[in-house]
Write a protein that binds this DNA or RNA. Structure first.
Length: 236
DNA sequence: GCGACAG
DNA sequence: ATCTTGTCGC
């Protein structure tokens, strides 16, 4: 893991780029997204999810690793670090990935699939944070956004499991998925190394009666607590 | 030119 | 994401 991080820091790119340069990087990374399905749901044993929270320019990130499909918490890592890149629609990875990378580096277990808050290829340049992070860790990722960023769609039916497709022109870039009866849908897209239908089945199998898949739900709860007790943590 | 715009 | 009171509904 440490070797992997050093390797990636040398080969990827810097994160403190001006927006115009960041967009160029995204366009260059576009060809590196693995769209082959590497995930056999019956072989998934470890599933990870992350979430971030902010206190001014201080950011916190947590990664939780769960067993699958029974969804028992197996590992938790968190980091605290100053964040300078602002939130810019389409450039979320440049704000959040340094935190995610640092947290991922502390992980002892190697997740089979990652659930990432935000978009995958349902992005203007097909390079949402889930895809960007997938390239970095070279592991399957699913983009799981709570609201819309990119793509045309029709509202899905009201029942749990109802869905419609997200389109860019004639191309399907994601699914608008009703994960719970009568609540706002989730915007699911392939991040890296997984097919859209497997991603959707995976998400649904993690939403035990709630709108958000359990790992993301609990990552959110944990990061809120960590931020409240942020004094007791050391900066990186 | 006018909206839309993950977290 | 964060700010931030009351309020509608199961």
């Amino acid at each position: 893991m440490h070797l992997a991080r050093s390797f990636c820091f040398l080969t990827m790119h810097r994160w403190d780029l001006p927006p115009e340069e960041a967009i160029k990087v995204q366009n260059e990374l576009r060809s590196k997204v693995d769209l082959k399905n590497r995930v056999d749901l019956s072989k998934v044993r470890l599933i990870a999810a992350s979430d971030l929270a902010y206190d001014g320019d201080i950011g916190y990130a947590v990664i939780l690793v769960y067993s699958y499909p029974d969804l028992r918490l197996l590992e938790e890592v968190s980091v605290k670090r100053r964040v300078d890149f602002p939130y810019i629609p389409g450039l979320l990875a440049f704000r959040e990935m340094p935190l995610l990378i640092e947290a991922a580096d502390k992980l002892k277990k190697k997740p089979d699939v990652w659930l990432i808050d935000g978009a995958g290829i349902a992005h203007p340049r097909r390079m949402g944070i889930a895809s960007h992070f997938g390239i970095y860790v070279d592991a399957p990722t699913v983009g799981c956004a709570k609201s819309h960023l990119f793509g045309k769609f029709k509202e899905p039916g009201p029942k749990q499991g109802d869905y419609t497709y997200l389109y860019d022109k004639d191309e399907i870039v994601g699914v608008v998925l009703r994960t719970k009866d009568g609540v706002k849908p989730l915007f699911i897209s392939v991040g890296y190394g997984i097919s859209l239908d497997v991603a959707v089945r995976l998400i649904l199998s993690c939403c035990d009666g709630y709108r958000l898949p359990k790992p993301l739900r609990e990552a959110h709860n944990v990061i809120e607590r960590i931020k409240r007790e942020g004094d007791k943590m050391t900066l990186f």
